[in-house]
Each structure stands twice: as structure tokens, then as C-alpha cells.
Amino acid sequence: MCKNMPPLELAIQFHGHICPGLLIGVRVAEFVQKHLDISQDYDEELVAIVETDSCGVDAIQAILGCTFGKGNLIFNDYGKSVYTIASREKGRAVRVAQRFGATAFKESERFRQLNRKESLNEEETAEKENLIGVLFEKIMTMPLDELITWEDIELKMPGKAQIHATLQCADCGEGVMETRSHKTEAGILCIPCYQNRGGGSGV
């Protein structure tokens, strides 16, 4: 993926297609870059805390460079289109939330109906493509303060990602990160094996 691509193209290439959620993520990422005066992350200069696992997060990863692999993308499963982005260098953080109902266009509901169908006929496929064009225009041109709210916040910056030892699970034999393993009388267990033996649901 070419880092010199425009943000929208980066996001589409990463996500694989255009959809309303991705476009919202693009606008959030572009706003954050301007608001915090930051560029794409290289080595954990930025931290993103996201409260959804929806399409918009792919734009955050592609444009801002915050990823699970680098350890600077933190997922809180709250089911909210909220993104907190922080810059270690700037010592600043901003929390961005999508406004409730901001994209409740009639085209959005029809797009969701079509998207839920397992297969589309030729007419429906053409309709969906047309809807994407309409939604693209609406989402990408609507005033930013009608789409999102934002506030600068104080954020205790999480530590940079650590490399931990890999241990072998006594049951399945697979490797498990030390910090995610359970020490038991049967030996070291990974979370699934620990749960299969009647252990708790967490680490």
C-alpha cells in the first residue's frame, strides 16, 4: 500500500470497497490529522482508542497508521462510533464521536437493506452502486460539525507495545503470549484450554 496515496484511496485499498462507514472514518481521520497537526504514524507516535469494530476503523488504520499489529490501536467494545486519537509528540488527544442520526438519509436505509441481502439481482446491484455514489457525495461534503462532535481531552498515554515471551500450552501445544496464559496445576494453559477446563472467561 503506497503511503503517498490520498487518504481516501488509502482507506479504500485497505478496506477493499467504498461504504458509508468507511467514508465517515475517512472524514474523522482527516479531521484528526488537521486538528492535531499530525501525519501518519510510523512507530507508535500516535495511539487510537476506538469504541467500535465497524468499517470506519479501517480508515483509522489506513490513514493514521494505528494498527493492532503495532499495538497502538486499542479496541473498547462499546458499540459506539467514537474515536480517541492521541499524539505522544504533541502531548494532545482528541475524542471524536459521530453525531446520532447524522447519516440517517433515506438512501442509507435502502443501502442497508440491500447490504443485508445474501445476493442481489442485476437491478439491485445497479441500485446499490448508485446509492454509494449518492451517499459518497452526501457524507464527504456535509459540514463536519453536522457529522461529528469533538473535544480535546486529557489522556494518560498507554505505554508502547511490549514483546512478551511465548509459552507452550500444556493442552493444545500451541504457543500463547505469556501475559495471556494461565498457570494451573496442569501447567501453562491458553485461554481457550483454560476455559474448556472450567476456568473463567477472561485472562
Rank of each mutant, 00 (worst) to 15 (best):
V26D: 00
L8G: 01
L155P: 01
A165F: 01
G21L: 04
M157N: 04
I12R: 12
L23G: 02
K160W: 01
G187S: 13
F105M: 05
T84P: 03
L135P: 00
Y83M: 07
V203W: 13
Y78E: 04
E30C: 12
R99F: 09
L64K: 07
Q98L: 14
G69T: 15
I132Y: 04
Q98E: 12
T84A: 06
N130R: 14
V57S: 03
L10F: 10
L23P: 00
A93I: 03
Q168V: 07
H164I: 06
A59H: 04
T166D: 06
R180Q: 05
G101D: 13
K70F: 08
D53W: 11
L189I: 02
R110D: 08
S108Y: 12
D53P: 00
C66G: 09
F14E: 11
L114S: 05
L114F: 11
T67L: 07
T52I: 07
T184K: 12
I153V: 15
S108P: 00
L189T: 03
T125W: 11
S54F: 05
K90T: 05
A165Q: 09
G202Q: 10
T141H: 10
G21E: 01
I139H: 01
E30R: 06
L120I: 08
A102V: 07
G21C: 03
A11P: 01
E123P: 00
T103C: 12
S119Q: 14
G198I: 02
D145G: 02
T141K: 11
I148K: 08
V50N: 07
Y78C: 03
A48T: 06
R110K: 15
I18A: 02
F75Y: 13
N130C: 04
Y78H: 07
K80T: 05
Q113K: 14
S201C: 02
L64M: 08
A11H: 00
Y42M: 13
G65V: 09
V94F: 10
E107S: 10
L131S: 02
G101E: 14
G79L: 07
V28C: 06
T166R: 12
A102N: 10
S39H: 14
K128P: 01
E107T: 11
L73K: 10
E44N: 15
K70T: 10
E146I: 03
Q195N: 03
L155Y: 03
L22Q: 00
G91L: 05
R110H: 11
M157K: 07
I38K: 10
R112T: 08
P6A: 09
S54E: 14
S201R: 12
C66N: 09
T52M: 10
R197G: 13
D171Y: 08
D77M: 11
